[in-house]
């Protein structure tokens, strides 16, 4: 049973682990950077030291401008993916749900594909173009799914899933179409993006995503007890006083907004949103007040580590991080499927 004591112990322990993992991830990369320069680099990052930034060594630039923001972005994306996964699994009462199940991600991907097709550059109206188009695509998909799934003011779970699956298929077809008419050299860029990849974001972009993700995660956290009750089934939840329709709509909108943002900055990184919640649930149980933040932290660590692998295995070349998460997550998922059947399904 969840007590304040247990919550603080688990989350506190995970936070310590997160710090350790982030420091570890900062030490590995295509170039070897001394751990002490990690420290000096981080010192130099604080404002007021802007003048110093012009004097920075290349190794410090690598640390401050490339590796640090990328590791942080990996952590945030992983945390968001896992939190969205937990929420959707509870909302849909389906342990196989992941952040990409509802078609919002395909909308984002289509937005990015269009931006690449029409050769829109790295900025659009002074904003980073690919995330902007990705987010806009995700929002449109969200509205569309909402319209499709809603009937008489209600949002039945099965029509939500169905609308998501169908929209996924249709939008994926559009993306395929776009890649097929593209010049092969350029479609390679799009494919690389679709495979899921993290790039080093600029600090403004990182800050925007961080604030956005943390806000959505905080709101999700406040709905954790509702998620618990929702797993009892929709009717039972209502008989316990939950306004299920309103809660479902809020949770759907929140997860979709976060998914759109995730896909727009990192493409489709599979398995994190599905496998991490499973693993954490096995270890600490299903109470979402603990499961949600714990999954977010574990998901963040998992993706930060996976991205470190992706950055270093073939250095100086990189591999798409989605490949690493799938290779690590796939066998684990098989294990769950084959040996933990009794528990999970």
């Amino acid at each position: 049973m969840l007590t304040v004591h247990r919550w603080v112990a688990v989350i506190g322990g995970l936070l310590l682990a997160c710090v350790a993992v982030l420091v570890l991830c900062l030490q590995f990369g295509a170039t070897s950077v001394d751990i002490r320069s990690v420290a000096t680099a981080i010192m130099h990052m604080f404002p007021g030291d802007l003048a110093a930034s012009t004097r920075l060594e290349t190794s410090e630039i690598i640390m401050v401008q490339i590796r640090f923001p990328r590791v942080l972005m990996g952590f945030l994306v992983g945390a968001s993916l896992a939190a969205v996964g937990v929420t959707l699994q509870a909302l849909l009462r389906n342990p196989l749900a992941d952040p990409y199940v509802l078609g919002v991600s395909s909308g984002s991907a289509l937005g990015v594909s269009l931006a690449i097709l029409f050769g829109i550059g790295s900025t659009f109206l002074l904003l980073p173009a690919l995330p902007l188009f990705g987010f806009a695509g995700g929002l449109l998909a969200l509205l569309l799914i909402y319209r499709l799934a809603q009937s008489k003011g209600r949002l039945p779970i099965h029509s939500l899933l169905l609308a998501g699956v169908i929209l996924n298929a249709v939008l994926t077809a559009f993306i395929m179409f776009i890649t097929s008419i593209m010049e092969p050299n350029r479609s390679a860029g799009l494919m690389a993006w679709l495979m899921g990849s993290l790039t080093a974001p600029g600090y403004p972009a990182l800050a925007v995503f961080a604030v956005y993700a943390v806000l959505v995660l905080a709101v999700l956290m406040r709905k954790a007890q509702l998620l618990n009750v929702l797993t009892l089934g929709e009717e039972t939840a209502r008989s316990l006083g939950v306004e299920t329709e309103g809660v479902k709509k809020q949770l759907f909108a929140l997860t979709a907004l976060l998914t759109g943002a995730i896909v727009s900055v990192s493409g489709m990184i599979g398995f994190v949103g599905m496998v991490v919640p499973h693993a954490v649930r096995l270890l600490i149980g299903s109470d979402h007040r603990l499961l949600l933040p714990a999954s977010a932290l574990v998901g963040g660590m998992f993706l930060a580590l996976a991205d470190t692998m992706a950055r270093t295995v073939l250095a100086p070349a990189e591999i798409p991080v989605g490949i690493v998460t799938a290779l690590a997550g796939g066998p684990f998922f098989l294990y769950l499927l084959l040996w933990r059947k009794d528990r999970m399904f």
């Binding site: 049973m1 342990p95 797993t231 149980g285 109470d287 528990r343």
Partner: peptide, 14 residues
Amino acid sequence: PQEYTQVFPFTVAE
């Protein structure tokens, strides 16, 4: 309710 299925590992006390 008539029937109750739980897909997630919740304990009885929870």
